[in-house]
C-alpha cells in the first residue's frame, strides 16, 4: 500500500508516455469510444424492440450467453485472429474495441427495451388515442419515460467497459491496465496497486458523473419513489453483473 502511495506521489510518474495522464487519456478514449458506439447500436435497436415487442426472446438469450462468456478468452482469441489479418495500431486496438462494444451493448439494449416495455399501457394507449403517430409515441412518451432505465443501462455499460479495458492491457492496449500488467511482470506491487486504485477511482467517479447528468435528462415526475422501485426491479434483471 505504501508502495502504491509512493508511486502515485512521485511526480515523474504523472508525465511521459507511460505517465498517469497519458494512461488516463488512453483509458478514457477506449471507454468513451466503446460506450458511444454501443449506445448508437443499442439505443435504436432497443427502442424498436420495445416499441414493437418483437425480438424479446432473442435479447434475453444473447444477454445470458454474453454473461457466461469469459471476457479474457474473447479478448485473446480476437486479438490473435486480428494479428493474422491486420497490422499496426488497428490490429491491437480493433479487437479490443470490438470486445468492449460487445460487452456494452447488452446492458443498454436490454434496459432500453425493458424501460419501454415498462411504460404504463394506459399512457401508451392515451398517446395513440390523442393522435400521436408511432414515432411521436416513441420519442415523446416511451423514450422519456424509459430514460431512468436507459441511463442505468449506460452506467452499467460504462462500468463494464472501464473494467474490461484494464484487462485489455494483456493484449497490448494502453490505459491503466498497463500498470497492473507491467507491475506484475516487473514484480512492482506498488505499481499494480496504484493502477488498480486508479481504475476503481475512474469507475466510481464516472458512474457518479453519469448519474449526475441523468438528473437533467430525467423528468422530475419520474424520479418519485414509485418509479424508482420499478427501475430497480428491471435493473436487477440485467445490470446486476459485476464488471469483469
Amino acid at each position: 500500500m505504501t508502495a502504491a502511495w509512493d508511486f502515485l506521489t512521485t511526480a515523474a510518474n504523472w508525465s511521459g508516455t507511460d505517465g498517469i495522464w497519458t494512461r488516463f487519456t488512453e483509458h478514457l478514449f477506449y471507454t468513451l469510444l466503446s460506450v458511444v458506439i454501443a449506445a448508437l447500436v443499442a439505443l435504436p435497436l432497443g427502442a424498436v424492440i420495445g416499441h414493437t415487442g418483437r425480438g424479446v426472446a432473442a435479447i434475453a438469450g444473447v444477454a445470458n450467453a454474453l454473461r457466461a462468456l469469459p471476457t479474457l478468452g474473447l479478448l485473446t482469441v480476437l486479438t490473435l485472429w486480428s494479428f493474422g489479418l491486420l497490422t499496426g495500431q488497428l490490429a491491437r486496438l480493433g479487437p479490443s474495441i470490438v470486445v468492449l462494444v460487445v460487452l456494452a451493448v447488452p446492458p443498454i439494449l436490454s434496459n432500453t427495451y425493458a424501460g419501454i416495455a415498462a411504460v404504463d399501457p394506459a399512457a401508451r394507449d392515451a398517446a395513440r388515442g390523442m393522435g400521436m403517430t408511432g414515432s411521436q409515441v416513441l420519442l415523446r412518451v416511451e423514450l422519456p419515460v424509459a430514460m431512468p432505465l436507459v441511463l442505468s443501462g449506460v452506467r452499467s455499460a460504462y462500468l463494464q467497459v472501464v473494467a474490461t479495458a484494464t484487462i485489455a492491457a494483456v493484449v497490448g492496449l494502453g490505459g491503466f491496465g498497463r500498470y497492473v500488467v507491467d507491475g506484475l511482470a516487473q514484480q512492482l506491487y506498488g505499481k499494480m496497486v496504484a493502477g488498480a486504485l486508479l481504475v476503481a477511482l475512474m469507475a466510481v467517479i464516472g458512474d457518479r458523473l453519469i448519474a449526475l447528468v441523468g438528473r437533467f435528462l430525467v423528468s422530475p415526475g419520474l424520479s418519485g419513489r414509485r418509479v424508482r422501485e420499478k427501475a430497480q426491479e428491471a435493473e436487477a434483471g440485467f445490470a446486476a453483473v459485476p464488471p469483469t
Partner: peptide
C-alpha cells in the same frame, strides 16, 4: 388519416393514462 382523426376526438380511459414525465 388516423392520427389526424384522433386529434379531433377527445379520449379518456380508465386509469387516465397520464404521461408521468410531464407536468
Amino acid at each position: 388519416d388516423a392520427p389526424q382523426l384522433r386529434r379531433g376526438i377527445g379520449y379518456v380511459i380508465q386509469n387516465a393514462g397520464l404521461f408521468p414525465h410531464r407536468t
